[in-house]
């Protein structure tokens, strides 16, 4: 069982490091808070294991929302992973024409074993359709690896992109989120003696669930 848990956590690191769940697609109202937990559902072999992260977001203006989060899956294995960033409205939704938001931020990792540190800036863009409490989105995001040259044997890559589509129900104080992500489709993801479902032999993929409260 321990082996399954640790393998699940490692699998979640694929998700957690390829990208974390999209926290906010449509910026919050000014002064509004959102606190949520996300459950990464990385697929390795045929199994899934629930490993969670948590985040908080606040609408700092009508068009800007700041967020910060932590990944518990990384903590399980001895790495502190914190993230933060901002989502901004770009184009408001106009009927069937989707609204567009974009965001930027960063992910920081620190090993509690030897205090090795990595920081990955990230940027993303979301197209969304909102009708009442329903929000449907399609998103693209990329992490930038400024220390790609530290990868062994020169196998680092500067960009780690991901693509996702999701649905979220934002009803009064409650929000539920479902998202499907294709991760790192520019390189082969590999875990020894495990099968990582992929797209044409590249990347990984998985579902994310999240619940949040707004206040």
């Amino acid at each position: 069982m321990l082996r399954k848990i640790l393998l699940g956590a490692l699998g979640t690191l694929i998700i957690a490091t390829g990208c974390t769940p999209t926290k906010v697609v449509v910026p919050l109202e000014e002064g509004q808070w959102q606190i949520g937990v996300t459950q990464g559902r990385p697929q390795i072999n045929e199994g899934y294991l629930p490993v969670i992260g948590a985040y908080a977001a606040k609408g700092v203006s009508a068009t800007k929302t700041n967020y910060g989060g932590i990944q518990f899956s990384s903590l399980l294995l001895g790495a502190v992973q914190l993230e933060g960033g901002q989502i901004r409205s770009w184009i408001p939704q106009d009927g069937l024409m989707p609204g567009v938001s974009w965001g930027f931020g960063g992910q920081a990792f620190m090993s509690t074993r030897d205090y090795a540190f990595r920081f990955y800036p990230e940027a993303g863009i979301n197209a969304y359709w909102q009708k009442g409490p329903h929000i449907v989105n399609a998103s693209a995001n990329t992490w930038v690896d400024p220390t790609w040259f530290l990868a062994d044997f020169g196998r680092g890559q500067i960009l780690a992109p991901s693509f996702s589509a999701g649905y979220r129900l934002r009803y009064k104080w409650f929000e539920a989120q479902l998202e499907y992500k294709i991760l790192n489709p520019t390189r082969e993801i590999h875990i020894p003696q495990a099968y990582v479902p992929n797209t044409s032999g590249l990347g990984g993929k998985g579902f994310f669930y999240g619940i949040a409260i707004n206040f």
Partner: peptide, 11 residues
Amino acid sequence: ATGLSLPASMI
């Protein structure tokens, strides 16, 4: 496993 320059000491 991650596609990033993370060292093994993270895990």
